[in-house]
Amino acid sequence: MKPTFKLDAHPRRPRPLLSEPPAGYFDHLPMQIMARLPQAEAREAAAGWRWLAFLSPALRTSLASVAVLGGFAASFFLSGTPPLVPATASTASLDAVPRTELVGYLLTSGARVENSDLAILTAANPGLANGFLHASEDELNDALDAQPSEDATYL
């Protein structure tokens, strides 16, 4: 077991005596400090913004907020509107791709196609699947019956 520590049992080390400052140190100290202060030209340049010190902190904060929001609004309006691209360009290029190739891409590319997406497509164009889906009505019914469904709306 360790013995208890008692501070009185340990002798103190002698402190070294402080040395005297150089001769005339305190006489020259104010001049050295004044030499480090900003010059009069720098103070005159800052005088143009001195009026901000007279405003209340809430008013200064609101002024800064207005300046930031004004800069954002100005950059937004000066950037201009993006050039309009006709919407027919993308649909025309997709119409040139055969439907079987589109379906093959969607099934193999890892794209997340859900049943609701396909339901919207077939509702808009009921004969869409006739070109690539070759199954009898009995096969389709068997495949649909094998699907697990907990919601009564899909039955």
Rank of each mutant, 00 (worst) to 15 (best):
L133Q: 12
T4N: 03
W51P: 01
V66D: 09
S93G: 09
L133D: 06
S116H: 11
R99W: 15
V66R: 07
A87G: 15
P57N: 02
A96V: 14
P11Q: 01
A53N: 10
T108S: 10
S90Q: 12
G127L: 14
T108D: 03
G80M: 12
L102E: 14
F76I: 03
T4V: 03
L106G: 14
L107V: 13
L121M: 12
A46H: 10
L59R: 00
A67I: 13
A152E: 05
F26I: 00
T100C: 12
A53C: 02
L55K: 06
L106D: 08
L84E: 15
G131Q: 10
V85Q: 14
G131L: 12
Y25T: 06
S136A: 12
F76S: 14
P21M: 05
A152S: 08
G24C: 01
G127Y: 09
D95E: 14
L121I: 06
T88N: 07
D145S: 08
S109A: 12
A129E: 02
S109I: 01
P22G: 05
V66C: 07
V97A: 13
G24I: 07
Q32K: 07
P14I: 06
L18K: 00
A135V: 11
L133N: 14
S19N: 08
G127H: 11
E20W: 00
M34Q: 11
Y25L: 11
N130W: 04
A89T: 13
L128Q: 00
R99Q: 11
D142E: 11
S109F: 09
H134V: 11
A46K: 03
G48W: 04
L37T: 04
L37C: 07
T81Q: 14
E150F: 12
N130Y: 05
L37E: 14
A58H: 05
G110W: 08
P21K: 00
S93W: 14
A47D: 07
L59T: 03
E101L: 15
S79R: 13
N141W: 08
L7F: 03
P30R: 00
H134R: 08
S136P: 10
D8R: 01
A40D: 10
L59C: 02
M34P: 00
A135S: 06
P16C: 00
S93Y: 08
G48V: 12
N115V: 05
T4I: 05
I120S: 08
L69Q: 06
S109P: 05
A135P: 11
T81P: 08
